[in-house]
């Protein structure tokens, strides 16, 4: 009995050690992938045409989803906040409350999560299927650099377009909030936006921009890493797309928590 228990402990210990080693090896591999991105991403020759195409794919093709989400979030958030504020007779604070909430957290987080789902999975699946069908190998053997063409363009494009989409989400959210306030209280467009924007600081805009660039970079790197290194077969493509979304979303939440703590230092909170 004792021997059985001991061997079970030994097996579990070996499993745990193996898992731990795998985690570190993966982190090491991801680290090398990121270093390669910085080494190759900013050196000529540049893939400008592909970069623009990726910006279009990531940005323009996400507009409908982002617009709807932003508009509904602003509208619902305002409607749900109204009763609590009206208890204190503070409904006039609604515009600034919505503006701060949207700009500081809701817009970057929502955009990041939507992009992780839409863009991350698309990059993971696209590169994964290119790996499986030997298209990446075909680039390698024709002396082209697939990493530069496929990875750096996608990561830079998502790092550029996610911040733009974030401010667009915030704008759509404000439009939704205005719709609610206007229909309930008849507040004018000028009045609403004056009230909303007077509480916004330079730090809010800077923090949001930095955060969304990091989110964009994360989505791009995770999607590309999963797709570029996907194993052979269609199952591998599915796994790459799925992992790109799950890991991307997890990292975005983690980065959100860290960034809130970090920027709180500058806000003196």
């Amino acid at each position: 009995m004792k021997n059985n228990n001991e061997s079970l402990v030994a097996v579990k210990t070996a499993e745990f050690t193996g898992w731990f080693t795998n985690v570190f090896l993966t982190l090491y591999d991801v680290g090398l992938f990121i270093i390669r991105f910085f080494r190759e991403g900013f050196l000529p020759p540049y893939e400008i045409k592909e970069l623009i195409r990726q910006c279009y794919n990531i940005g323009y093709r996400s507009l409908l989803l982002i617009s709807t989400t932003g508009l509904i979030t602003g509208l619902v958030f305002t409607k749900q906040s109204r009763p609590s504020l009206s208890e204190f007779g503070a409904t006039s604070w609604l515009p600034s409350l919505v503006a701060i909430a949207l700009l500081r957290t809701l817009a970057p987080l929502l955009t990041g999560l939507i992009a992780a789902g839409k863009v991350g999975s698309s990059i993971g699946a696209e590169l994964g299927s290119m790996r499986v069908t030997e298209q990446i190998d075909a680039m390698e053997v024709s002396a082209c650099n697939p990493f530069k063409f496929l990875v750096t363009t996608r990561v830079i494009a998502s790092s550029i377009t996610i911040p733009i989409l974030t401010f667009y989400t915030a704008l759509m959210g404000m439009a939704g909030a205005f719709l609610n306030v206007n229909l309930s209280e008849g507040t004018s467009y000028t009045e609403f936006f004056q009230s909303a924007l007077e509480q916004i600081t330079f730090l809010d805009i800077t923090a949001s921009t930095i955060k969304s660039i990091i989110f964009g970079f994360t989505i791009g790197i995770v999607g590309c890493y999963q797709g570029y290194n996907s194993s052979k077969g269609t199952e591998g493509v599915g796994k790459a797309a799925n992992s790109a979304v799950v890991i991307g979303m997890f990292l975005i939440f983690l980065e959100e928590v860290i960034s809130v703590q970090f920027f709180a230092i500058f806000r003196g909170i």
Partner: peptide, 13 residues
Amino acid sequence: RLKVGFSFQNSAL
């Protein structure tokens, strides 16, 4: 690799 052409089984276009 510039001197070696590789034609893939599934064409890899």
